[in-house]
Amino acid sequence: MLELKKVNKTFFPGTINEKKALIDVNLHVETGDFITIIGGNGAGKSTLLNSIAGVFPVDTGSITIDGVELTKLPEHKRARYIGRVFQDPMMGTAAGMMIEENLAIASRRGKTPGLSWALKDADRSRFRELLKELDLGLEDRLTVRVGLLSGGQRQALTLLMAAMNQPKLLLLDEHTAALDPKTAEKVLNLTQKVISKYQLTSLMITHNMRDALRFGNRLIMMNAGRIVVDVGAEEKKKLTIPDLLQLFEKAAGEELDNDRMMLG
């Protein structure tokens, strides 16, 4: 489904700050895969997701989804295929607009906006149904501005917005990192629910090893711009956190260094 071939990305090339963020990255993702991604500081996890989403162009290599060449497409044109949730809860929604307006925009993700009315009555009842499934009481607050919601509520809403019209690929960039543990847990469970409901192919970056093991059917670890460990479903089920650390050290030749990494 998703295919990355020899993708390279270097930031600030030729300067003292030069940073090789991705080095010859190859990745093949099957339809229905739910892949968790872990790695140290500056390993290239976010760069990987942002390259796929088209936030910036990659230097060399190709990125395709179901055979469609994305490599040269600008970010907004890739949105047809890709739903995203960001680390910052502020980033995925328009704070000054109502919940229903945000959902209306998301329900048309990837389509060129036209001159028909953005909000139709039929949409409202559909939004209400969808929000009910989040179980956060948002279904009665359609006309509330999103800026008034809590971080967890905003992330749940962003998740719904990313998933509601079944993107080919869902990208989750540490989307629970800014939430308190209880809310993070809730959003993670919701993520699992949404992914199974819409049968989404997903990539999820996490700094929590337990979550990386608990969720998904495949796990990859990155280090210094490369994918150093890639574990499939069967093997992943048997893995423990010490196994994971050991795997990483063996592959990377150093200890896993992430000041936010949580082992438990």
Binding site: M91, T93, A94
Partner: peptide
């Protein structure tokens, strides 16, 4: 309006 509030978000929605 979304562009004014959050360009990042609306780009991610394909605009």
């Amino acid at each position: 309006r979304a562009t004014g509030f959050n360009p990042q978000m609306i780009r991610a929605q394909g605009v």
